[in-house]
Design a protein around this nucleic acid. Sequence first.
DNA 1: TTTTAGTCCTATGTATTGCAAGGTATATAA
DNA 2: TTATATACCTTGCAATACATAGGACTAAAA
Lengths: 111, 111
Amino acid sequence: MRKGMLEYCILLLLRAEASYANDIIEKLKEAQLLVVEGTIYPLLTRLKNEGLLAYNWIESPRGAPRKYYTLTPKGSEWLVGLNAAWSELSNTVARLKDLKVTIPENENINL
Amino acid sequence: MRKGMLEYCILLLLRAEASYANDIIEKLKEAQLLVVEGTIYPLLTRLKNEGLLAYNWIESPRGAPRKYYTLTPKGSEWLVGLNAAWSELSNTVARLKDLKVTIPENENINL
DNA sequence: TTTTAGTCCTATGTATTGCAAGGTATATAA
DNA sequence: TTATATACCTTGCAATACATAGGACTAAAA
């Protein structure tokens, strides 16, 4: 079910604060979404190639420097669209959850 | 983004009312979710084979009889799990949307 | 100088999802 | 009897998303 949500969640994250890969993994973990390196690096690269993200090299207190990703203007626009899609999906589910049960579930079932 | 949501939406639908394929397509359309035959028949068959759905043959006012699908007890249990997963996902997104913007988005971007 | 920790990356594989296209069967209407 | 409308189904494709596994580079610590 979470399929396809990762991109949205990452853009939401980056809207709030520039972050590098391990950062993002940690923050998503806090938000109850488990991701691993092998998932996130290709995704960040893809989003950068599509022009939705850009990055700054920033020194690490230890080891290799970090790529801090931020939203580009195009990324911000794209996020607006994703927000709309998410709202629509939420509404769809809400509507379906609110349907009244009209017929008992256990009559005349043929397996 | 809607990927993987279809199963959930169909189970929600069937919880409320037994339905056959074209019925389901129509109701999902009303709920703003477009689906076509080639998508739904394999899915219904899969869910039946997994024991989540069962069906009754019911005469059609015209043409071939219809398979009215209903949730099995196992399907109802499964739906409980999906509801939980959906709640968690909603919470995750809500949390990420509520993050405060802490750093401007347009400084020092290297493409 | 070697080890360790942190950071980046790619290639490949797996699984799934949803769709397009084509096919079969039933029943009524012309 | 043929045509039409309704209903079911299967096969195979395309996309994609995520994970696994491996590798390489940098800098500080031992």
